[in-house]
Amino acid sequence: MDVKVNILRYNPETDRKGHWEEYILKADPDERILDLLHKVKWFDDGSLAFRRSCAHGVCGSDAMVVNGENMLACQVLVKEVSTPIKIEPIRGLPVIKDLVVNMDSFFDSYKKVMPYLINDDEPGERERLQSPEDRDRFEDTTKCILCAACTTSCPVFWTADTYVGPAAIVNAHRFVFDSRDNASKQRLEILKDVDGAFRCRTAFNCTSACPRGIQVTKAIEDVKRETLTIN
């Protein structure tokens, strides 16, 4: 079938601002949106820029706005979206070219929450023990692939880019609720800050945007509640 695709193009070397280009592509309903982008790039305009690697929703490279919603281009099939298909870069981060945005501030926020296990106790020669129940408490947030779909769907982030954003809070949650970690208090102090978890206005955009099905808003609520337990 023929599919009409509109892509928001921007080349900093030739354009002053972005403009829409239309492409009519032969596509199979079972193909991924990513396959459509490849058709444009490989057989029409080689200069189209987008990130991608794994092509099956596990690396987090290709978050973009498709018909107004954040998703991974490799995780959505042509038959699941209405036509014409409108594709834009994720919002709130500077565009480098076409569908590629600058991720620096996103990763800086991630690093702010100390996203690593902190425990100075001597662990011994074998693994630390953890019950399946304790392991379950942070299962959901271990799934994050740092795709930025959540953070760039958040209306608070669009207006205040100093807000650490949902993805950073998800990654803090992953350690705050890990029974093996000893630094929850430090992380929660950081998230108590003006640009921390309390900026969240529970819009739930992040939860619907997350391609890993993480209950992002719930994780933020868990962190907020936990923050109240420290003094």
């Binding site: 690593y116 023990l129 392991r135 942070f138 271990t142 350690f175 890990d178």
Partner: peptide
């Protein structure tokens, strides 16, 4: 595991 890898248990 000591570095934090969340293995199933």
């Amino acid at each position: 595991e000591h570095w934090g890898l969340p293995f199933s248990r």
